[in-house]
Every structure is written in structure tokens, then in C-alpha cells.
Amino acid sequence: MTTRWLTPEEQRAWRSYLAASWLLEDTVDRQLQQEAGMPHLYYSVLANLSDAPDRRMRMTDLAETLKITRSRLTYVVTRLEKDGTLRREGCPTDRRGSMAVLTDAGMELLERTAPGHVETVRAAVFDHLTPEQVNQLEAICTRITDVLQGDEESPGCDGLPWRRRSSAE
């Protein structure tokens, strides 16, 4: 099989994407560390739970939503439990499963932190894009996500992070 090297245009686009994604993640992470003492992933867990019915989600579903491994989510949830921002409960529909539940303290932390987080995201991304570019960004990211998740004809869906089993599981 012959290697299909990236064209100069594709190489520039790829490198531009990498630079933007790394810088954006660093910017958001720094802001959340400074304001709330937590990394972006922890904030994302709390934010997703705040949007869920009764502020609770099955751990497997939360891992899929966040696009992370179940073992990584378990680590994050354990840390957030120690902080009192969430708790785990048994899953009523699956005896082996568990639910992550956002506590009142977690919701209060999220409500205090969200304005600064949104302002950081707006200042770093959306203040510099036209409405058409926002739509294009969404379309491009959705397309990439769909392909990688196997929503299209794509091999390797078992390799998705939330479906992986680590040696610890």
C-alpha cells in the first residue's frame, strides 16, 4: 500500500488545527485552574451532569459523552467525590452499573465558575468568528466526530475510548 502523504494544504490545515486545539485547551484549562482549582475535564464532568435529568448520568454514558475511557472517568469521579461535588449511586436499571450525581455543592461551584469559563471560550473562539464560520466549525467538527465514532462506515468502533477496557477494569 502506498502512503497517501498530506498535500501542502492538508499539512497546513492539520498543523493549524493542532496549534489551535492545544492552545485552546491550555487557555481553558488555565482559566479553570485559576478560578476553580480544577482542570477542564473536571469542569466538563460537572457541566454534563448539570444538563442531565436529575443531575445524574450513568457512568458509561458520561464517559461516552466526554469521549474518555471509563477508567479515566472513574479516576476523575473519585477525585470529585472527595471534593464533595458529586457522588456515586447504584444504577437502578443495571446492578453492575453506577450513576454519577452532581451534588448541590457541585452545582454551586459550577454556577460560580461558568461565567468566567464562558467568557474565556467566547474571547478565545467565538468573538473572532462570523456566524457563517461558527456554522462551518460545527459542521467540520461534527463530521470528524461522526467518522471517528463510526457513525459512517468506519472500522474500529470497539477502539472508542469509552468502549476500551484497561487492565485495571
Rank of each mutant, 00 (worst) to 15 (best):
M1P: 14
T3W: 05
L6E: 12
T7N: 09
E9D: 14
S16V: 00
A19M: 03
L24A: 02
R30P: 04
L32D: 00
E35M: 09
A36H: 05
G37N: 04
M38W: 08
P39E: 11
Y43Q: 03
S50H: 10
P53A: 10
D54Q: 08
R56E: 15
R58L: 02
T60K: 12
T65H: 12
R70H: 10
R72F: 12
T74W: 03
V77T: 15
T78R: 12
R95D: 11
G97H: 02
S98H: 00
S98P: 04
A100G: 12
V101K: 13
V101I: 14
T103N: 07
A105E: 13
A105P: 01
E108M: 01
L109A: 01
L109Y: 07
R112L: 06
A114F: 05
V118T: 01
R122M: 01
R122A: 00
A124E: 08
V125G: 01
F126E: 00
D127F: 08
L129W: 03
T130Q: 02
C141T: 15
T142Y: 10
R143E: 11
T145H: 03
V147I: 11
Q149N: 09
G150I: 02
D151A: 02
E152I: 07
P155S: 15
C157K: 15
C157E: 15
P161G: 05
R164M: 13
A168F: 06
E169Y: 06
